[in-house]
Simulated scan of single mutants.
Amino acid sequence: MINFAQLPKGRGAQSDGADTNLAQAPVRQLTSQASTLIIYFSRSGNTEAQAQLASDVLRADRYELVVQQPYPANYAASVARATEERESQQWPILDLSDFPSLDQYQLILLGHPIWAMTPANPMYQFLAQMGQQLANKRVASFSTNAGYGAGDTQIVLNKLTPASTRMLPNYTVHDIELAKTTQAFKQWLQKMVIVK
């Protein structure tokens, strides 16, 4: 069970400097039975906790996105790098060398933080690079934010995954509210099974 009380809180959440995986390999929970795949990026661990909960509720597989050059552990330095990437449109390079075939999956859930009112740069890069592979899949996203909501997430999804079937609107939660919103998130996830 996830202990949300131990997760980082609010702006400036601490990172281990390796996209939550300094001491362990990226999450690759892949089976031959699951019909749902959760693809996510997490800097501080909040989105990873949501992805784990979603996986438990939906019995879904998980694939964590990692960048070749991890973001700094220092929050201000991460913000500066992310801003520079966005302004120059020089997105981070992802390591997708072991990305699975999507053939078995009917539903793809995308998990990401919100940075500057848009999906975090690694998720944006993933969608730009791989969005066409989500064609004919049911797609939805969930996000964590620092108090300003989901921003233009739905616009980005519509633009970068035009051939997929959009499910429910993005579920977003202020990162300091994770523990209080577990039931609401579970209800949103269960609607995925109902809405087809």
Score class of each variant (00 low, 15 high):
residue 82 A to K: 00
residue 23 A to D: 15
residue 110 L to R: 05
residue 84 E to T: 14
residue 8 P to Q: 00
residue 174 H to L: 08
residue 40 Y to S: 04
residue 3 N to K: 12
residue 106 Q to Y: 00
residue 108 I to C: 12
residue 136 N to S: 14
residue 76 A to P: 01
residue 181 T to C: 08
residue 2 I to K: 02
residue 106 Q to P: 00
residue 23 A to Y: 14
residue 70 P to Q: 09
residue 129 Q to N: 07
residue 10 G to V: 02
residue 189 L to A: 06
residue 74 N to W: 02
residue 178 L to N: 04
residue 32 S to F: 02
residue 32 S to D: 12
residue 109 L to Y: 01
residue 142 F to S: 11
residue 110 L to E: 01
residue 166 R to Y: 11
residue 196 K to V: 04
residue 54 A to T: 14
residue 80 A to P: 10
residue 125 Q to T: 06
residue 15 S to N: 01
residue 140 A to H: 05
residue 21 N to E: 04
residue 126 F to N: 06
residue 83 T to I: 13
residue 36 T to G: 03
residue 189 L to P: 13
residue 96 L to T: 06
residue 131 G to H: 08
residue 151 G to W: 05
residue 167 M to A: 14
residue 30 L to Q: 05
residue 180 K to G: 08
residue 152 D to E: 12
residue 20 T to K: 07
residue 20 T to H: 02
residue 111 G to V: 02
residue 139 V to P: 08
residue 29 Q to T: 11
residue 160 L to S: 02
residue 95 D to I: 06
residue 45 G to Q: 00
residue 24 Q to G: 09
residue 40 Y to E: 09
residue 52 Q to V: 15
residue 72 P to W: 10
residue 184 A to C: 00
residue 192 M to G: 10
residue 79 V to I: 15
residue 175 D to K: 00
residue 138 R to D: 12
residue 130 M to Q: 15
residue 101 S to M: 05
residue 137 K to P: 08
residue 190 Q to Y: 08
residue 192 M to S: 13
residue 168 L to Y: 11
residue 129 Q to W: 05
residue 100 P to V: 03
residue 78 S to N: 10
residue 77 A to C: 01
residue 79 V to L: 15
residue 14 Q to P: 07
residue 46 N to L: 02
residue 15 S to W: 01
residue 145 N to P: 10
residue 13 A to I: 00
residue 90 Q to K: 09
residue 65 L to T: 08
residue 110 L to V: 04
residue 109 L to A: 05
residue 116 A to R: 11
residue 189 L to M: 06
residue 20 T to V: 09
residue 33 Q to I: 09
residue 52 Q to A: 15
residue 164 S to D: 00
residue 190 Q to V: 13
residue 81 R to Q: 15
residue 52 Q to Y: 09
residue 73 A to E: 10
residue 14 Q to W: 10
residue 53 L to T: 08
residue 82 A to M: 08
residue 17 G to V: 09
residue 99 F to Y: 14
residue 123 M to F: 01
residue 2 I to G: 00
residue 102 L to N: 06
residue 63 Y to R: 04
residue 5 A to C: 04
residue 19 D to R: 14
residue 154 Q to W: 02
residue 94 L to A: 03
residue 171 Y to W: 11
residue 151 G to K: 04
residue 189 L to Q: 04
residue 79 V to A: 13
residue 66 V to S: 10
residue 194 I to A: 14
residue 124 Y to R: 10
residue 187 Q to P: 01
residue 56 D to G: 09
residue 151 G to R: 10
residue 173 V to G: 03
residue 58 L to G: 14
residue 72 P to F: 10
residue 90 Q to M: 04
residue 83 T to Y: 00
residue 128 A to F: 07
residue 88 S to Q: 15
residue 24 Q to H: 10
residue 160 L to V: 01
residue 29 Q to I: 06
residue 72 P to C: 07
residue 74 N to Q: 12
residue 188 W to Y: 15
residue 60 A to W: 02
residue 191 K to V: 04
residue 97 S to E: 12
residue 184 A to Q: 15
residue 35 S to P: 06
residue 22 L to M: 08
residue 44 S to H: 01
residue 135 A to M: 02
residue 189 L to E: 12
residue 111 G to L: 03
residue 59 R to W: 06
residue 100 P to D: 06
residue 156 V to N: 08
residue 142 F to D: 13
residue 1 M to D: 07
residue 12 G to E: 11
